[in-house]
Design a protein around this nucleic acid. Structure first.
Lengths: 348, 348
DNA sequence: TGCAAAAATAATAGCGCTACGATTGAGAAT
DNA sequence: ATTCTCAATCGTAGCGCTATTATTTTTGCA
């Protein structure tokens, strides 16, 4: 019987919500424990009781308080996802797919953008841990020492996505960017191209793009003893940059005949610039992209590109997280190679 | 003195974290209240005490528990953002900008995707409220009755973004899509175009695209008595769809000379398809897009388009939310028109 | 019908933190 | 010296919920 909890001391305290589980319990003539149990495991409560509770919830318009629930349960139903930027279509796709799956389990997505900075990522991880999330999802496998340390200190499950082959923290879902680069090189070399270049943006920050570039160069060398040039630019990847980089490529490798791009936006820029300069694609230069973005199948010429399974990475990440939340630890320290696919079109 | 809280009853209870504020307080020889105060308002604590606390925090590796904090404070430092899809570059930009600003204030972004469904949005709003967020951000102004009801029942601040002119729930930041459509019509008519069409995707679900289309049609009629055709498709907006829609437009309006698109992807598809069919742009057909996406300045011809200020919407939304969190209610029920800008390029 | 086993429900004791009022101590004003 | 003021710090009592144990009710079966 605490009609007025602070009656004795005269203190005021701001309440969070008007309708609490207590109120639902009273309305349904059961104890709060039963309401809580019903909400978490309906099958553990008798059908009639369940109906009474559902009725009370509807009548009162009860909204459960997940903050209180998270505190009591020592783990919140939040999943923290940290990506370089959701402006990047790759990560947007993964985040959207993951949210769709996690949402079904009433897991809330918390989003952070590292902007390709390890320092920023560390700061985001620190904040994320403050929420006692069910899992933390990080992009890639290169993290600051501090990030690794604070993650090792806790026991929050960690899923690293979009990269493979490095040192895993816990669970890993992605593909080999080295192989992507090698696949592009192999394809171009196989098509008889000999003067190769890799065009990329933000190669300092974007380790994965860098890995693709290295794989490309090494495979060109290994397969045919060719020297492939890497032409980078610190600017953000974009169509305009692609046009610019083509210009640089033509200067550095005058008789260039094969180009791989760190992403499709750059490849599209290359296609446009080739058209402007009257360079035939793939006649004079073959172009391979990365991403298989929206326009790849419609541009002129259509773009041969490597398709990373952004949505699959998202759904798989969601799957292992959901399993973990349910208590199934069998995915612990798993490494899932989602692979990728070369999509042959006209440009190469 | 409660070294072992459950000693008497012998109950086990899982603890959330090893280092609590209590531990920090003991280490720094102050009370927990002071640590809490220091963390929330450092200026209210003496410098020497602050240093002692900072030292203790570092030594112990203390991570504050925002879940507990949120419960005690009756409001969590979370902001729930619900957009149709983060795959859409418009919303990705806004979400990224908003997260950047909110992150500075240690406000956590919680993300949900409605996939253009009012029902789904309602479900997401319900879940969002369970987190007692500092604010809820919704896209657009058309919501289900249920959504409006549950939002009205609480007192969580609501920010509606990307649309203006409808019935506001609370704060509104966006621009008029009707004006966007009218601007496109005015521009094309002003350039002497007479056979007009508006090409759009998902016109049923995407009310804003629909509003732009209606504005376009009405302005064409008002200015020059012209009948503009609306050519829609339930598929997702994309470059490929643009090509398809151009074909339909040519059938429906054989001597078409002016096209407005519901977004730049569709416009790009139109450009590509025109190139394939040997139709000159803007010679034969003028094309106006919407979005000013990455490629708009680089494609052939460069795309005349209407630029919605996605990042500005995000930063403004963050600003009013931060003000509200700080206790400044002056933005309550504000309506901020961010406007938009027609970017003239070659295609029209 | 009686009794053990199982099912359903209830009572208890916090989770870690913050808001509020209370208290302390140092300097200013009298 | 005494009172007053203000800044700095502390003690208390929950926020709303869940995990655990305890109790009650129902069921199965002889």
């Amino acid at each position: 019987m605490n009609e007025s909890p602070d009656r004795r001391t005269g203190r005021k305290r701001r309440r969070m919500q008007r309708v609490t589980m207590q109120a639902v319990a009273e309305r349904a003539n059961v104890s709060p424990s039963t309401v809580s149990l019903y909400l978490r495991r309906p099958e553990a409560v008798a059908a009639a009781t369940g109906q009474a509770i559902t009725g009370a919830i509807d009548e009162l318009g009860y909204v459960p308080n997940l903050v209180a629930g998270g505190l009591a349960a020592a783990a919140s139903r939040a999943v923290s996802i940290i990506v370089p930027s959701v402006r990047n279509a790759f990560f947007a796709e993964t985040v959207a797919a993951m949210q769709a799956e996690l949402g079904k389990e009433r897991l809330q997505v918390m989003l952070g953008h590292s902007e390709y900075s390890d320092r920023e990522e560390e700061s985001l991880v620190r904040t994320a841990l403050s929420w006692a999330p069910s899992a933390i999802v990080l992009t890639g496998q290169s993290h600051s020492a501090g990030t690794r340390k604070i993650l090792a200190a806790g026991n929050t499950p960690v899923v690293e996505i979009w990269e493979l082959g490095g040192q895993s923290i816990d669970m890993t879902i992605g593909f080999s960017h080295d192989k992507v680069g090698r696949t592009a090189a192999e394809y171009l070399v196989g098509r008889g191209r000999r003067q190769l270049a890799f065009l990329g943006a933000r190669m300092q920050e974007d380790r994965r793009a860098n890995t693709r570039a290295q794989g490309f160069v090494q495979e060109a060398l290994r397969l045919a003893g060719l020297h492939a040039e890497i032409i980078g630019n610190p600017a953000r990847a974009g169509v305009e940059l692609g046009a610019l980089l083509l210009g640089q490529a033509l200067e550095r490798v005058p008789d260039i005949d094969g180009i791989a791009c760190s992403n499709d936006h750059i490849a599209l820029g290359v296609l446009f610039e080739c058209q402007r300069r009257g360079i035939s694609v793939p006649g004079d230069i073959a172009v391979v992209g990365f991403g298989d973005l929206d326009f790849a199948g419609s541009c002129i010429p259509t773009l041969t590109t490597i398709r990373p399974p952004g949505d699959l990475i998202g759904t798989e990440a969601a799957r292992v997280i959901i399993n973990h939340v349910r208590g199934d630890r069998s995915d612990s320290h798993c490494v899932i190679d989602t692979g990728f696919r070369l999509v042959e079109r006209q440009s190469a």
